[in-house]
Design a protein around this nucleic acid. Structure first.
Length: 482
DNA sequence: ATGTTC
């Protein structure tokens, strides 16, 4: 680890390069402050950035965002693009929670409108939205319906009456990765998906009632429908057991494919397959199915949020004005076109704990946001701020249109539980004016604010590095933890 | 993240 530190070359205030050597096919690039660099070195995430740089077909560099930390095989906070002809696809570089992501909902409400009703609102959300490990939803899908969900994504939910077509235009890829073939899913993955739609899950997944406390760019804030004092709701969840099973299934299959295609990687957890192979494309299909399931899940949960708010506050739909600002994935692999040496190239962009941040005028940014750029949603952790950013040209040029995804852990779950022994995290948050409830007591401890890096610093680094710009900052009023 | 070690 110390020897890696000695080799780092500083290229800018927030940019360090790990020069290419030995088996590395490309250099590594870290977007970090000095303090965040120390953290990345301390948990060996920098070694994982180097490991990723060894993979076949990786193009230009192996990237790390400021919230980088140790993950399965590839670092969380890592970004890498692989040539669509000669590259590989890497389940460990997407992660177990495929399309873990965040959605921001805005309302017509101001904080003063709901302050006295927060406790009952939070109780209502717990009643409506199942949370915690292994939780199951109201719907029990038939296999045929599950196949529709994974093929159609959020559009399936809208077709069934959960939300409106306007919601879809405010979701990455309109809430559906095309060409998701349910045949790529194992029986077990299908079974796990049948009962878990419209559930929040556990770990760092949460649902939060927030207040917009600062707008950094008034005109873009208006385009996103945000104003100071406004109530927003943030939903952070993913593809639940279905996505987990997809990752598990294909890690096993890729172990065999590695021998068949004579691939070798520095860490078995980086098991991969040529992206153009049968196995590689099967994984890509299954990953799309899981991603679509997650888009549908966040869409269903939004509907339940609206239902709860209207019931508890006695409002009609137009009074509440619940609308999707945006919905983005931060664990996903996408086939995208980017300029490499001035030429457009098809690349499989892996973002693991990293968020797409496309600039203004990009055709994949929704029409109504195209003049300003894609909204980027950065969830903080309980008791800390969340942000809305916007994508930039510099992100397009340097990071395949990517930025950070959140605070990023600094303590392991185990360590957080140890440190918080004898303390009540709920009471500590209450003293800060934040109402917090969790499906389990240990869940709250694992996710305590001190277990995470400083989200304000992470966001300051991506802004300082030019990878995105701050538009708004929100603070939590009430938190529902899985 | 995860029917948290099928």
């Amino acid at each position: 680890m110390e020897d890696i530190k000695a080799k780092l070359e500083r290229k800018g205030p927030y940019t360090w390069v790990i020069p290419r050597e030995k088996g590395m096919r490309v250099p590594g690039v870290l977007y970090v402050s000095e303090r965040l660099l120390e953290k990345a070195l301390a948990d060996n995430a920098v070694v994982q950035v180097v490991n990723v740089a060894h993979l076949p077909g990786i193009t230009r560099y192996s990237l790390a965002m400021p919230d980088v930390h140790w993950g399965y095989g590839a670092p969380i906070g890592g970004v890498g693009a692989f040539d669509a002809e000669s590259g590989v696809i890497v389940p460990g570089f997407v992660g177990y929670d495929i399309n873990c992501g965040v959605r921001l909902l805005r309302t017509n409400l101001k904080a003063a409108d709901i302050k006295s009703r927060l406790e009952i609102l939070l109780g209502g959300l717990f009643q409506e939205i199942p949370s915690g490990v292994g939780s199951t939803g109201q719907l029990k899908l038939k296999k045929k319906e599950l196949e529709e969900v994974v093929a159609e994504g959020a559009g399936w939910a809208v077709r069934k009456g959960f939300g409106t077509p306007a919601d879809l235009s405010n979701i990455e890829e309109n809430g559906c990765l095309k060409g998701a073939d349910p045949e790529s899913l194992s029986q077990r993955a299908v079974e796990r998906g049948l009962e878990q739609l419209e559930t929040l899950g556990s770990g760092n997944h949460f649902l939060e009632i927030q207040e917009v406390v600062e707008i950094y760019d008034e005109s873009i804030g208006k385009v996103f429908g945000l104003f100071p004092g406004q109530i927003t709701v943030m939903v952070h969840t993913g593809s639940r057991g279905l996505g987990y099973q997809v990752c598990d299934d294909y890690l096993v299959r890729f172990g065999k494919a590695m021998t068949k295609y004579e691939l070798s990687v520095p860490d078995r957890q980086l098991a991969c397959a040529p992206v153009n192979s049968y196995e590689g494309q099967q994984y890509f299909q299954a990953m799309k199915c899981a991603a679509n399931y997650a888009f549908a899940n966040r869409q269903m949960i939004s509907h339940l949020v609206g239902q709860t708010f209207r019931r508890v506050l006695g409002l009609n739909e137009s009074q509440l004005g619940l609308a999707v600002v945006y919905d983005v994935a931060h664990n996903i692999c996408k086939l995208e076109t980017h300029l490499v040496d001035g030429q457009p190239r098809k690349l499989y962009v892996h973002r693991k704990g990293a968020t797409r941040a496309f600039a203004a005028s990009h055709p994949e940014v929704p029409q109504h946001y195209r003049a300003v750029g894609q909204p980027v949603i950065i969830p903080g952790t309980m008791g800390t701020a969340s942000y809305i950013l916007v994508g930039t040209e510099k992100a397009m040029a340097e990071t395949w249109g990517s930025t950070c995804h959140g605070a990023g852990r600094t303590m392991s779950r185990h360590e957080a539980i140890r440190v918080s022994r004898g303390r009540s995290i709920a009471e500590e948050l209450a003293r800060q004016g934040i109402l917090a409830r969790a499906a389990s007591r240990s869940g709250l401890a694992e996710e305590m604010p001190a277990a995470y890096k400083d989200v304000d610093e992470v966001v300051a680094v991506v802004e300082g590095a030019g990878l995105s710009r701050k538009i708004a900052r929100m603070l939590p009023l009430a938190v529902m933890k899985g």
